[in-house]
Amino acid sequence: MIPARHSFQEAGARARIRALLDAGTFREFCGPAQRHTSPHLPTLGMPVAFDEGVVVGEGAIDGRPVLIAAQEGAFMGGAVGEVHGAKITGLIERALDTRPDAVVLLLDSGGVRLHEANAGLIAVGEIQRAVFDARAAGIPVVTVIGGRNGCYGGTSIIARSCDRIIASEEGRLSVSGPEVIEAVEGVEEFDAQDRALVWRTMGAKHRRLIGEIDALVADDMEAFRGAVSESLGKSRPLDLDELEAEHARLAERLARFEGVSDAREIWAALGVNDPDRVSEIEADEFNRLVATLEGARA
């Protein structure tokens, strides 16, 4: 019998939190009954959400304390508004007081909520500042990407500010989305309708191969839960030496791949024998491939 698989992508924010945390441990902060809703949306004649499209709270994973936030991707594409952002910032700042084993951010967002313009942009900056404060205090901040919206715009910058990123193949990570790139650069440069192109440019497999995410998992709650559990208590140094090493790595990567026009050329250069197959293989086989490549490089 094939064991039941519960999709992370298909679940809403609350169901994701329930599935990742130990049963019965979740305690929500600023829950929907408190009605901390957007002050901006009503002035534009738009409906609000009682939880502002993000659920924040505390709980446990394998008995270890965590703080967790989950964006609801179905509300305005998970976009960050002023109150939405304040809830996430407050959650991360709480980590300095309660010192959990990790702050876990389930990001599912197109970025800043354009209706709230500057307030949304400032909110993203505040979240990023809070992430760095938590990391400086030695508390790991882990991003999880596996929702329909992927992780774009300001939220992609937040994700890359964290200690670790866990994503499913369905997840995507990029500053500009496909439609934005097409609108700015033209359809000849990037065809947003070409889903294969979108995934091999922004998809989690590509991001894993070029070292921008740390773990690729199947779209399965248990797989996500296992990967988050493994990240607990593991912080990555955040100091000048690390930053300079990262800048050097990025400069080298840019110089090496500057003339490349398709991700498959990069994968081939990294040692992937059959780049055309990368998009088709399951998470397990993909991870064996990554382990082989990393073993060869070491």
Binding site: P32, A49, E72
Partner: peptide, 18 residues
Amino acid sequence: GEALVGVVGSGNLEVMIE
């Protein structure tokens, strides 16, 4: 007690019952 179901979107609604 309370419960929240649904997400606001085009053609959709959220209901909080208390």
